[in-house]
Design a protein around this nucleic acid. Sequence first.
DNA 1: CAGTGGTCTAGACCACGTC
DNA 2: ACGTGGTCTAGACCACTGC
Lengths: 258, 258
Amino acid sequence: MFYTSIYNFKNTMKKRVSISSQIKEHLIQGIRSHLFTNGLPSENQIAKQFNVSRMTARKAFSELVYDGWVERIQGKGTFVKTRELSQGYFKIQPSWKQAKDLNVIYTTNVLELKTISNPPGRITDKLNYNQQIILVRRLHFFDQIPVRYEIRYLRGDLCGGILWENLENNSIHELLTQKYNLPLSRVWQRMTAETMPKKIAALFNEAAGHPVFYVERLTYTNKNPVTYVQYYIRGDLAFEDTFSPDDENSPNLLNLTY
Amino acid sequence: MFYTSIYNFKNTMKKRVSISSQIKEHLIQGIRSHLFTNGLPSENQIAKQFNVSRMTARKAFSELVYDGWVERIQGKGTFVKTRELSQGYFKIQPSWKQAKDLNVIYTTNVLELKTISNPPGRITDKLNYNQQIILVRRLHFFDQIPVRYEIRYLRGDLCGGILWENLENNSIHELLTQKYNLPLSRVWQRMTAETMPKKIAALFNEAAGHPVFYVERLTYTNKNPVTYVQYYIRGDLAFEDTFSPDDENSPNLLNLTY
DNA sequence: CAGTGGTCTAGACCACGTC
DNA sequence: ACGTGGTCTAGACCACTGC
């Protein structure tokens, strides 16, 4: 019964469909239809029902877990995930990537690159370190227009070599993760909308009071903070995104909301 | 050799570690050490090397794929994923959820709820529909302070019943997905930083010129637009997030950047 | 205790890419 | 033809839950 109906249906499409993904679709139907409110059938039940081995049924369940539909509880069963927490994601891309997407020419200007002798307390607190701290100030341009101003502090003990790198043509992210062997393990970040103070506005060739995104980010490797960065991003440089299920880099649609 | 060394190491930790996840860790080490630049060993090779069945080795590979480390190409092999596209995500949560996180009291005020006779062209274009369009204007409060102003247009043909719902105590997202059976299938959204025009500022009890986040979002079910919403969010109501590997709702860390 | 999910085995056949 | 990943089988033992 199952095979014929689903199989015929699926065969009208070009792509060959595996049994496990047919089972997955079947289960999603059930979830959508508000069945399974007391839990999904067990893996063994589904295996028998569709006359497949348990590993095949289990694969369907696993994908439901990865896609965020259900959660498994050992010894109890598999249950529909209720969390409608749901949110819309905005991604802050590196400037060069955003430039590529917008098809504009990307350039960077290093305004300052030096070791700080007496770093302010709020920085040493954030980096949990109060000796050699490196300061980098860069201005990023799209088609010669300044769009992002970056103030970055780095822990000199972890990546002091940054002082001798060319930071106009190299990504700091890539240098840290690859050359300095500092895998990124945690991120804290925060964004507010602000109006430009005079000094910042001057860099952007705008009058004070223009809107900007203000982003702070603290990034860790193995629980050690490595770099703290502040971004001022033109308010009219929009964050724009589309999320659809076919889009492989999309966050899970179940996490989004109307 | 592998067993003893890794096993002893892992045994110092409390959690029991499966063979496949040991293999996974081993492969991650290799990736981090810049081996595998010409591709990972094949699943069969790894299975032999660790004296396990191919399914076990394959499970380790699968998790690397899910975690974004590698990609598999049928007939060719498994390769380290180069895309350093990487970005930081900000999530726009529904107001009630954000209030819960901040531990403040959340209330909503419906300022307007009606069918529009002659909707503006930019709205009908977005919703791809020019007849009965429903307008909802709401103001969301945290501890009696207005924090988010929402202007929403909905397609009356798909969810006309919204007109008779209590929108001060119900989530529009939940109504649409559950009661009106409109599963969310696609999202387009865009955010800029703006300064408040006079009318908006009045709602927030601020002077014009204060910074706000301005968000537009168009949401679809099955390629049909369902609702278009504009949000004005106080600029000082920060978007703040922490991402770490242990955090189950986090986006993949490989998608983040220094 | 029975039933659940978590892991693993030792095979098998298929689709795809390379030579 | 050969090696790769993609799928699947028919078992097995384990850890956990609930009765």
